[in-house]
Nucleic acid binder design. Structure first.
Lengths: 344, 344
DNA sequence: CTGAAAGCGCTTACAG
DNA sequence: CTGAAAGCGCTTACAG
């Protein structure tokens, strides 16, 4: 026999005597069982040349009998392993996250990256999740929200790509810019004769979001006097409740512009229950371009995000950051695009 | 100095002379830079006791200066690392996948597992993706489709939990059982006076799915004569096209039962365009219980999957399989539940 | 509080 | 075609 079976004495495969062998088999166990050296086991397991068919079969049989699986750590230590991307979303149940994740997962796969998915939306476990994630991946990307603040000091060594950075941030990231699409939407609304638009913003009262401000501004520059209404949470339910009140007014608005598609779905639902025709009585638009927008009735006019482009930039940045390539441009911008459908 | 700086000579941190150091810093580099031993670096990096504040700071500074990140392989080799779940879906753009993934990702996080997400739906890359996945995770779970067949022979050592196994399969997995919910739906339809139901099955002609057969059977046992129509793909578009034809018939059906929610959305859309009232003129139901079902108009009656329960079973099986616990029950069943909403 | 030694499980040259 | 040696980067006892 090539190497002494140091770890598993012959006929004594288990130290504890429990029914199933406790310790996972290693390459040395397989080598001993097959009566070969460990590098011959490597050759057989990894389909490498320079090994006789007979030996390969014997090794593979031994491996199978021992339920042998190469340790990803042992292997990774010498091969380097696939690069790993950690994708952080804030709520996988919000359809925005999966659409983003779908694009990133596919692009990552094409580029040879694996992606670990984490949802920090729920419970108080975000801290623990980020801690465990940062230790397991080469680059973290996603919607960190307030957790972006402490990143530098806590996990500074792990490169971070922000997907929710604001325009002022100097952090590496992909920023979304709705400005041009907002102009297009405002122009469209004016063209079709909108008189009394209301902007449904997802924000605290007296703290209109920058997106909300941009929409208001674009409408005002075209001579309209838009009103802004704040909704506590960007859920369809919250938006529906608020919209239900607004459309009951005597001076009913003729356009409701929601902070995002999810809220717009709630608005559509409120209009339906109030017996209003969309877009006849009132026009509705959202932001994000979620695929469901084509499934609701009427189909939703929206400012769409090109998720594939976001994914492309994300993977480029990830590659740059994990290479530590100096001087790469680490800030990307993706513009929304107006998609006119039935609702506006 | 405690240990010789074998790898990086003083003042010569880079062999190649390129602007950024090519090789990633290791614990030895940090130790050399800080003038301590590697285990002192370990203590500082991992917040362990038994190290003076002054030393810790010096080490942390050196680590930061070198952009040091512990290798997940080096660390994992000795600590074992977090258990890793590989989640395989067939199409992340189909809302079913994210709802499942959301439940599994959360449950996994709660149980201390990391999850790597892979979408094998697109392109011809499934083979490559599964190969790279199986080497990186402890257990693979998901919708393998035809790839489940070759698993045993190719990646046999990696435990697999099938989410799309049929009733006959003996493989570990979580199976969905719509039988009881189908009875409930059939009973409901009869109660409300349905006379001419049509089942829209996602299958080849003359190859009705087991789900389709179960629906037909439940209706027939209640004295109805349901018809089955085969749709080539389970997309809203395909379903809408087929439904549009069916509802144009002189003897219009009064209920359209879709293979899944996605197809039901297409049916709803076709009815809307044909000017039919749902459920007044025709009743519509789907299967899956997707969250979007509450956002469409009318809201969709469906046979809902309890994704949280699927996730719970999945993680239990994963734990059992990675422990190689003998004799565990490796087959679980989750029943659908009838959710009556507006459409039926 | 700090360091020398051993070892985790694998692959990559290098010999034969 | 097969094996002996070295080494990947880290942590865990164990000494001092």
């Amino acid at each position: 026999m090539a190497e002494p079976a140091q770890l598993t004495g012959a006929g004594e495969p288990d130290r504890s005597g429990s029914p199933a062998s406790r310790r996972r088999a290693t390459i040395l166990d397989v080598a001993a069982a097959a009566g070969v050296s460990r590098q011959t086991v490597t050759r057989a397991i990894n389909d490498m040349p320079g090994i006789s068919a007979e030996t390969r079969r014997r090794v593979l049989d031994a491996a199978s009998a021992l339920s042998y699986r190469p340790s990803r750590f042992g292997r990774g230590l010498v091969t380097g392993g696939d690069p790993q991307l950690g994708l952080v979303v804030s709520d996988l149940r919000n359809p925005y996250s999966p659409e983003l994740a779908a694009a990133i997962v596919r692009r990552a796969a094409a580029d040879g990256w694996s992606v670990s998915l984490v949802d920090i939306g729920l419970a108080g476990s975000a801290d623990r999740l980020l801690h465990s994630l940062h230790a397991q991946v080469d680059v973290v990307v996603g919607y960190l929200g307030e957790w972006a603040l402490g990143w530098e000091s806590r996990f500074g060594a792990t490169p971070l790509i922000l997907l929710d950075a604001d325009a002022e941030s100097e952090h590496a990231g992909v920023r979304l810019d709705p400005a041009a699409a907002i102009e297009d939407l405002a122009a469209h609304l004016v063209t079709v004769g909108t008189r009394r638009p209301v902007v449904l913003d997802a924000s605290e009262p007296h703290a209109t979001s920058s997106r909300g401000i941009a929409i208001l501004d674009a409408l005002e520059r075209r001579g309209l006097r838009p009103e802004v209404v704040h909704v506590a949470a960007s859920s369809p339910e919250h938006a529906a409740a608020v919209a239900a009140q607004i459309i009951r007014r005597s001076a009913r608005p003729d356009a409701l512009l929601a902070f995002n598609d999810l809220m717009a779905f709630g608005v559509l639902s409120a209009c339906r229950h109030a017996g209003l025709d969309v877009p006849g009585d009132i026009r509705v638009a959202g932001v994000d371009g979620l695929a469901i927008g084509t499934l609701v009735a009427p189909t939703l006019t929206t400012l769409a995000v090109d998720f594939d482009e976001v994914a492309r930039h994300t993977l480029e940045l990830a590659a740059a950051l994990s290479d530590a390539s100096p001087g790469a441009d680490l800030q990307r911008v993706v513009s929304h695009r107006l998609v006119l459908r039935e609702s506006a």
